[in-house]
Design a protein around this nucleic acid. Sequence first.
DNA 1: CTAATAGTGTCTCTGAGACACTATTTG
DNA 2: CAAATAGTGTCTCAGAGACACTATTAG
Lengths: 223, 223
Amino acid sequence: MSNEDSGKALTDYPRPSVAVDVAVLTVHEETVKVVVVPSPRGPALPGTFLHPGERLADAADRALRTKAGLGGLDFHQIGMFDAPDRDERGWVLSMAHGTAVPPGIVESEVELVAVVDEKPVTSLAFDHGAMVALSVRDLRDRYASSVDPAGILGDRFTLLELRRLYEVVFDKDLPKDTFRRHVFGALTATGETSLAGGGRPAEVYRRSGAAALPESAAAMLRS
Amino acid sequence: MSNEDSGKALTDYPRPSVAVDVAVLTVHEETVKVVVVPSPRGPALPGTFLHPGERLADAADRALRTKAGLGGLDFHQIGMFDAPDRDERGWVLSMAHGTAVPPGIVESEVELVAVVDEKPVTSLAFDHGAMVALSVRDLRDRYASSVDPAGILGDRFTLLELRRLYEVVFDKDLPKDTFRRHVFGALTATGETSLAGGGRPAEVYRRSGAAALPESAAAMLRS
DNA sequence: CTAATAGTGTCTCTGAGACACTATTTG
DNA sequence: CAAATAGTGTCTCAGAGACACTATTAG
């Protein structure tokens, strides 16, 4: 905020309602998907109004718990959507948040909508489609500088699983040997192996610490 | 926003005041600086309360015009600051915005505070110091992918001027030949020359179109 | 054995960075 | 002329990407 508006007191202006909406992204069946919930205007992102004195991230958490059965995620602010006519019910600002989760923790009755080319394939209520688009870009930015920071794969995974995840997130094929050399420094081998592939067992890795990727990895991922 | 909160109407909740604050960055005398204005709590970013039905960017523009004599800039949302106790006068959320300007357009009576290591050297009111820090990071992100997108140098400049600007923004020395090869593709020669240096005249360039930099430039700039 | 997948040695070629040389001005 | 700055040719070395080979499983 600021110094006061030359004599205007805080209460002099009508205030907007402030809401939060959350784009919960995941990767399932080789596709980026987003959690949506039913609303009178069709599928929408889970959201809620901010309660008095509440933090935005707490409101986001509350919305996710009550509407999608998801709790304890960490949110990123994506952008404040402030078109005065974005909600016919009145003046409502909404802070869009983004997060990502492993597909397994989304309950089966929660609906997932595929996201292709940064756009949900089903059109969403309000300006929620634009929120999803920005969330996907944010996801890419974060995945370009760190190995699976949202833990979509959980804490143990093979290089094949990791590469498939990155191919879906960045929507491009990635060569296995080059990919391996780019991410290897950010991983720690667990000693375990996985036979999921059907051929030679794959080493199982976990993220090392922050799992930071070199700048060169971002160049590879963004083409 | 979202589907309504199960029966709660829009007016049922007390609403926060919503403010905007703007970190106007510039580069002057080899230093990143930020525009501050006086406030009862000491130097603060220019800001104001959002008027009914107003867009955040319009409020930001209004704050800058009335408090710093700057208009028509383009703003980037930096983050919503929402600590319930961030303003003792009440519950005030503030959307921090960032922008950058050529030093020449800042009127001489407007105060500039140097920003070192992403922190203003003078402590600012409220959480404005944190807003400045985030704005500097945003500035770096934007300058890493495009040539002087905010036009701090105006539309014509020599490579020396451009390199000095980037050295200040990224706080590191940049080799002249390597720097030149990284940015050259994003520039168009004007045919004019500048004698500002005192030696051989320097070619004057302008940004070509979007002036997008290659990914490799980001790697150089971020070390 | 074959098929399938995992992992790596190695080659090539690009290009980033360093160095130094040439070019063009002022005094 | 010397001094200062601008611009570039060239060398080297790292490393990205491609290819192909070896490794380890199942059947």
